[in-house]
């Protein structure tokens, strides 16, 4: 089953590892140049990137089914982290159990290419089913908060993230250059690249705070610099990985840059509300899984529908 990747997608996947090699080289050079500085955080951050990219690349290269399972596992970890962070009612244990079961169901709709079910299952059916299950248990104290916060988390970690998986099953003939994997790589790479670009621009030029109440370190310079870099990168990469043509490519980059920022501060606001710093400790140097996929929860559905409207 080594047929999942087009030559372009395979080459791009290789390119990601070249970038990681360069990153590790820079960290190594920094350590030698400033032996007295502490680079533990940066080192573990880059090492974690290697692990994440390695697992992701292996799943993508081996088979489409494995890619779907990998993305389902990401949703599971994200939902589990979310449910571990928020206050949940003991009475809702059965409801939470059902919420976890939506993950195999949702990814099954994806695997079978059933778009209609994929797009309404969580927003419509689960929206009604979970509160019904809560009502049958009968505990009304905190009902609205419990029903609302559970559905909010399901939308974010399962529904939104599963759009990335649906890219894999879109008709191949429309995107012969990149295939389904090319679309996922394009979205995944640009989203993470945008995070790094906003961080680097902010670190080097950042002066004017953009949203101090939610995320005090974020600046206008980082935001605009990141978006510009991502737009240019999308423009350059789109012909090799996606069916986007002409103005569509930079617009996709602009969309990913903007949505990535909003997705990021959305999770920041959640953490600030809960009074915690990191969403977890799963990924050394990064925090929890929600800290890593925060931008993706917004870029995945928006990029998907942008692309779907224009070409599918």
């Amino acid at each position: 089953m080594f047929n999942a990747l087009t030559p372009n997608a395979a080459a791009f996947l290789g390119g990601i590892f070249v970038i990681l090699l360069i990153a590790s080289g820079i960290v190594f050079a920094l350590k030698r140049a400033h032996p007295n500085n502490d680079y533990t955080e940066l080192t573990s951050r880059v090492n974690s990137w290697w692990v994440m990219a390695g697992v992701f690349a292996a799943a993508m290269a081996l088979s489409p089914t494995l890619s779907l399972i990998f993305l389902g596992l990401v949703s599971f970890l994200a939902l589990k982290e979310y449910l571990s962070l928020i206050p949940t009612r003991r009475a809702d244990r059965r409801v939470l159990f059902w919420a976890y079961l939506t993950i195999p169901a949702q990814f099954y709709w994806v695997a079978s290419g059933w778009y209609g079910m994929f797009i309404i299952f969580i927003p419509v059916y689960l929206f009604m089913f979970l509160p019904m299950r809560m009502v049958l248990i009968g505990d009304t104290a905190g009902f609205l908060r419990a029903a609302g916060s559970l559905h909010w988390g399901l939308m974010l970690t399962v529904f939104n993230l599963s759009h990335m998986a649906f890219l894999l099953v879109l008709p191949k003939e429309i995107n012969p250059a990149g295939g389904g994997a090319g679309l996922v790589l394009f979205l995944m790479f640009l989203t993470q690249f945008n995070d790094v670009a906003q961080y680097v621009w902010g670190k080097t030029l950042g002066k004017h705070k953009i949203i101090p109440k939610v995320s005090p370190k974020k600046t206008w310079e980082g935001f605009l610099g990141g978006i510009l870099t991502t737009t240019l990168a999308a423009w350059a990469l789109a012909p090799y990985l996606t069916p986007l043509v002409g103005w569509e490519a930079p617009l996709a980059g602009l969309l990913i840059g903007l949505a990535g920022f909003v997705g990021d501060v959305n999770i920041s606001a959640l953490k600030r509300d809960l009074g915690i710093k990191d969403s977890g400790s799963l990924i050394p140097g990064h925090g929890g899984i929600l800290d890593r996929v925060d931008s993706l929860t917004f870029t995945a559905p928006l990029f998907f529908h942008f692309l779907y409207y224009l070409h599918y």
């Binding site: 982290e81 059965r94 976890y100």
Partner: peptide
């Protein structure tokens, strides 16, 4: 901490939590 949430004394269903 949290295991009593995942599988408490009086409920046979395991619900995943970190």
């Amino acid at each position: 901490h949290g295991l009593g949430k995942a599988l408490p004394k009086d409920d046979p269903i395991l619900v995943p939590f970190f």
